[in-house]
Computed example of a mutant assay.
Amino acid sequence: MNKIVNTRSMIFTLYGDYISRYGNVIWIGSLIRLLKEFGHNEQSVRAAISRMSKQGWVQSEKKGNKSYYSLTNRGKARMDEASKRIYQLESPEWDGSWRMLIYTIPEDKRYLRDELRQELIWSGFGLLSNSCWITPNPLEEQTKDLIDKYDVSSYVSFFKSTYEGMNDHASLVEKCWDLDNINEKYSQFIEEYSKDYIIDKHKIAKGEISEGSCFVKRSLLVHQYRKFLFIDPSLPQELLPEKWVGDSAASLFADYYQILAKPATRFFESVFEQGDPPVIKEEK
């Protein structure tokens, strides 16, 4: 029996993997029915979607006596960025430059500093020294969006630079990210899911697994793999250790995801309301 995943987290997973591809709007009744497959009751779903609305991730609108929910622009931006990273099968190429962000946010705005820190970690930045964050990836646009979002331009300096020493790039990476620990977690993912992949591949070929089970398995697979977004900075190949297994984990995820795709999608479509939902206008 699958362990019940946090309701809010599973709603994010369903938006990213399904709902955003079907017009980005879903009737609350359909959402409740889908989440029932994972062991969530109606009360927990309504409470979670209400919190997400207050946090600015989703917005609602009524049509008759039915409530429909869609991602806000903020929610869509986060889902788009997450999707690019989740379905990235190979490490990105490197242009040889480092991006450096330094902030001096005053103590009375500490809450902004804490929120910005979490956003930087999620985007793949590593902490080089106190209030100094770096990444080899071209995150100029995302960084500008973050600065605008938190209105901290007067406290932030951002550079695109080259590393001139005194050590090599590997030493710099080691100081900012614990790649050994991340690599170990990828190894655990491969060990846990490689056997299930082979078993389910044969079951699907023989028609021995239900569409509902495929839907649950694919959603839980995405949910589990999505956790790497919070720890893996998606470093370029040139900066990764020799025995890096992240790319192998990505390939396993893609293959497993693909064999579950058709039956899982059929189940989703059987529950998802395909009527004429309202056009929800983005809040300003």
Rank of each mutant, 00 (worst) to 15 (best):
I231K: 13
G75V: 01
D180R: 15
D114T: 14
G64A: 11
R110T: 04
H40F: 03
P263W: 03
E140P: 03
A254C: 03
T162G: 11
N6R: 11
K84Y: 09
L235R: 12
Y186K: 12
G126H: 07
K284Q: 14
R117P: 02
T7H: 03
K195N: 14
D114G: 05
E164Y: 13
P236L: 09
I209V: 13
N41R: 08
L220T: 05
N137P: 00
K109T: 05
G124V: 09
L229K: 06
I32M: 00
E174F: 11
K76V: 03
K201V: 01
N65Q: 14
R8Q: 10
I182C: 10
G207T: 04
K195T: 14
Y256A: 03
T72D: 03
E164I: 14
K62C: 02
G23R: 04
V279Q: 14
L31K: 01
M52R: 00
Q224F: 07
I198N: 12
I259H: 05
Y186T: 10
G96P: 04
F228I: 09
D232G: 06
Y69L: 01
I204P: 00
I134M: 10
S154T: 11
I134Q: 09
S194F: 08
Q43F: 10
N6M: 04
E42D: 10
L139N: 10
E242I: 13
D255Y: 06
D276E: 15
S44P: 00
S70C: 13
I204N: 05
E191N: 15
E81L: 12
Y22M: 07
E211N: 15
V271D: 06
P106L: 09
E191K: 15
Q237A: 15
Y111Q: 08
E238S: 14
H40K: 08
S129R: 15
Q188W: 10
L128S: 14
L34W: 01
P233Q: 07
E90W: 13
D168A: 07
V45M: 00
V25I: 14
G29H: 09
E242P: 03
P92T: 12
H202M: 10
Y150K: 02
R266P: 00
I49N: 00
L220C: 04
D151N: 11
Q59G: 01
L34Q: 02
E107L: 13
R117Y: 12
I26L: 03
V173C: 10
P241T: 13
L252G: 06
F267D: 08
S213G: 06
R46F: 00
L146P: 00
T13Q: 04
S210T: 15
K63R: 13
T7F: 00
V5Q: 11
K84L: 10
L116E: 01
I49L: 00
F253E: 02
P233K: 11
L221F: 04
G96D: 09
E119P: 02
D151K: 11
F253A: 08
F158C: 07
R110D: 04
I121C: 08
S53M: 06
V222R: 12
R218F: 03
G165T: 09
Q237V: 10
D145I: 05
I26N: 05
A250C: 11
T135M: 06
G212P: 02
L139C: 02
G39S: 08
P263E: 06
S53P: 02
L139F: 07
S50E: 02
D276T: 14
S9H: 13
W244H: 11
F253V: 04
I182Q: 10
H223D: 11
K66N: 15
I105D: 08
L116A: 05
A264Y: 05
Q258K: 15
Y155V: 01
L71I: 02
T104D: 14
